[in-house]
């Protein structure tokens, strides 16, 4: 690790101002990803501003339904929260499918959104990587491709976003609240992540010094019967090859509401808007599910080493929707 100064921030505005002004500074919260990357010198901050004690650790009911989750809530606490387990089971399951209890006890909700990719070429400082060092090239694209993106990727970068939680948040239309040098603002999770073609070195639209303070999940009755399914190379404690967060409502045999988001396939949690559009009003049958999944994946741009993710994602989506509709019967 590069030597750094550790500062326990006194208040939010000075923390934000400090990180905004000093390019070598970084916020520290749970640290599970930051410390990991600092050890390998993938990240080399010279000042760590500890904000874990400053951000809210509360989960509050929103008037009119929904939840406001403080950015400092641990992943464990969020997954175990009764309101989440009842109202948004896909979110609880997504969190529980990620990492381990030990890590989830440390990791915060805010930090979970901002995890860096697990692309092994990004994590190896001796390899060219546009995300780590803009302009050096992408060594992953012609390298080991198993974990890489099939959707939304660019020639500049084919890395995937590793979060499970964010996939459920995307399906739930969650909105991130931030405070930055320019004040407070809100950013929908589905607009939080930047396309790699716009410069893969910046994962999100957040400005330097901008801190996630909370995330709000709107009321969504459809989410009460929802699920998260993670497909991976080991039964537990592994990142997703493909994951799916899904919820579906059926009235008179036709799809009256549906939410689908995919993980492990893109630089961001991939809200499957095409599939959702295709399904709406269609009969809730295996054929419709399959057609919708294929429509979503028509835009896939797989590499030889990750082409299997296309049928895998299709089958997982179909299987999830099938299971959810069978359950509802």
């Amino acid at each position: 690790m590069k030597p750094f100064t550790y500062q326990r921030a006194g208040d939010m505005s000075s923390a934000v101002a400090t990180v905004a002004e000093r390019p070598e500074a970084s916020f520290l919260a749970g640290g599970t990803n930051l410390v990991d990357l600092m050890k390998m010198e993938v990240l080399t901050p010279e000042l760590l501003v500890d904000v874990r004690h400053l951000v809210s650790h509360q989960i509050q009911d929103l008037p009119g339904g929904g939840l406001r989750i403080g950015a400092g809530v641990s992943n464990s606490e969020l997954a175990a929260d009764r309101r989440v387990r009842r109202g948004y089971p896909m979110l609880s399951q997504a969190i529980l499918a990620g990492a381990s209890y030990q890590l989830r006890n440390l990791a915060t909700v805010g930090g979970n959104f901002l995890q860096r990719t697990r692309c092994m070429y990004f994590r190896d400082v001796t390899m060219p990587c546009n995300k780590r060092e803009p302009g050096t090239g992408c060594s992953a694209r012609d390298g080991q491709q198993r974990d890489l993106a099939i959707l939304g990727a660019s020639k500049l970068c084919v890395a995937t976003h590793p979060s499970d939680m964010a996939v459920a948040m995307a399906a739930l239309d969650a909105v991130v609240h931030t405070v930055g040098p320019a004040g407070e603002r809100t950013v929908p999770v589905n607009r939080l992540y930047r396309s790699p073609s716009d410069g893969p070195e910046r994962d999100t639209v957040l400005d330097r010094g901008e801190l996630i303070t909370a995330v709000e999940i709107p009321a969504a009755p459809i989410a009460a019967r929802s699920r998260y399914r993670k497909v991976r190379d080991r039964a537990s404690y592994a990142f997703a090859l493909v994951s799916v967060a899904a919820a579906i409502e059926v009235g008179d045999g036709a799809v009256s509401g549906v939410r689908i988001a995919l993980g492990g396939v893109a630089h961001r949690p991939w809200r499957a808007t095409t599939a959702e559009r295709e399904l709406f009003g269609m009969p809730a049958t295996e054929e419709s599910f399959r057609a919708a999944a294929e429509a979503e994946l028509a835009a896939a741009w797989p590499l030889p080493g990750n082409a299997f993710k296309v049928p895998l994602a299709r089958n997982t989506v179909v299987g999830m929707l099938r299971a959810l509709t069978e359950e509802a019967r």
């Binding site: 697990r118 092994m120 070429y121 190896d124 190379d233 039964a235 404690y237």
Partner: peptide, 18 residues
């Protein structure tokens, strides 16, 4: 000529759940 998946997140061996 390098091992790409050179950590225990990349090189899997059986976990308890397996």
């Amino acid at each position: 000529g390098h091992v790409v998946n050179n950590d225990l997140g990349g090189y899997h061996f059986a976990a308890n759940a397996d």
